[in-house]
Nucleic acid binder design. Sequence first.
DNA 1: AAAGTGACTGTTA
DNA 2: TTAACAGCCACTT
Length: 116
Amino acid sequence: MTSNFYDRIYEIVRQIPEGRVATYGQVAELANLAGKARVVGYALYRVDMQTLDIPWQRVVNAKGEVSLSPLRFGTDYLQRSLLEREGINFSAAGKIDLRKYRWQTEPDVTTPDADA
DNA sequence: AAAGTGACTGTTA
DNA sequence: TTAACAGCCACTT
């Protein structure tokens, strides 16, 4: 049961620090599963039902919004609550500023756009 | 085994 | 800016 993919995914998600969020695509990439973002979502979908040891709430979609299944309707409020509790701020549209809260595991140059 | 589904993402309009 | 399409791969039936 549970393919290796899932174990890898869970491992990554567990490493997301508080006050930070990661996208499904990002988690997939870190888990060596680039392009399989949907699989990540599927894995987390199961995790929610099996265990709560994983901070699934810190995983959001590329739009910076909380994604959820119509089956879990209502849990979006829970997820948002948990994230706000960690210090993450939501916009009026209910979106997260990924530029600021995205879990960055790689050193980027921040694109110093010319010389101001 | 084939077809359908999905907690996604990037491109195009 | 949002909305719709297609691509993507694993899981379920």
